[in-house]
Amino acid sequence: MIFQPAIIALLLASALCVLALAASAPFAVEVIRRWDIKSGSERQLQLERRTYLFSTLLTFVLGLQLAAVLLFVFNAEKMSGMFVGAMCAVGTLNVNALGFPALNAKIAVFFLAAIWLAINHVDCRARDYPLVRMKYALLLALAPLLAASAWIELQYFLGLKADVITSCCGSLFSEGSPTLAAEASSLAPVPAMWLFYGSLGAAIALAAWHGHGGGRSRAAAYFLAGASALAFAATIAGILSFVSLYIYEHPHHHCPFCVLKPEYGYQGYWLYVPLFGATAAGLAAGAVQPFARIESLRGIVAGFSRRLAAIAANGFALTAAIATAMIWQSRLILLEH
């Protein structure tokens, strides 16, 4: 199954990423040990020049990882026709035990990469690169995770056998099975709706508060990051519990992947892309905040944080609006009033 074009492309992207990280690891160690912005020595000059290369390289490969998540799900969706019993991406991901871990790892990498890119962005705009040590230390921490994600992905793709009968979304997201996803699915629609709109509303309000204060309030930024993570979880739970039901117009089909299918007009992408973007922005707004105290970053962090808050607010609002529009258009009556 490895000779699938999309799989080759994904593996290519992962390999490139791991290679780039392996190449930058020695440099990262050197920066952590030897960086001294005040020195005018040859070595320091070299290091400063190389930071340009590595920060561009890492921006490129981590940016690639952001796109790879989409391609991964896109591909899983498309390949579902090839496995017995698979009807959507769930079936493809369930062909072997590594499908869902691979997806989860990719999503984790997505958010961590976004946070790293935000820190990098802030650092590159300051005159004296105050975060350079921190940045490369974080990169060293990120590297094993990325390598692990690439490894799981490779094992998953190598283990794809077309003759395996997989279980599909009907059994995984049905209300009786003992998984976390099933628990989220069996959440009654009314509390799920409260949670969904409540957490999205809270995240939007916090983002607005943070933006209104010019991105200066530290507490607001941390609350925003927390609320974003919560809103992400609540939105996924909400999609599992009731949004999917409205889209499929079926009271028992809870699958969060079938919404990506052409039969449903690829509606899921409208829901997930703003959600992921907004969550990443919200988390990043919190992640850059500890550095606001540094003299040369004061204005930069505040301005950038404010912009991130704006992205988060708009993204979450868009998610809520789209979900509401989907429910509005649906002919399913879930709640009697």
Binding site: P5, A6, L64, A67, N75
Partner: peptide
Amino acid sequence: VQVATLFFFTVVPYAA
């Protein structure tokens, strides 16, 4: 998917 894959195959190696 095809267009996205193709983009990965051509633009990414060039950029790298």
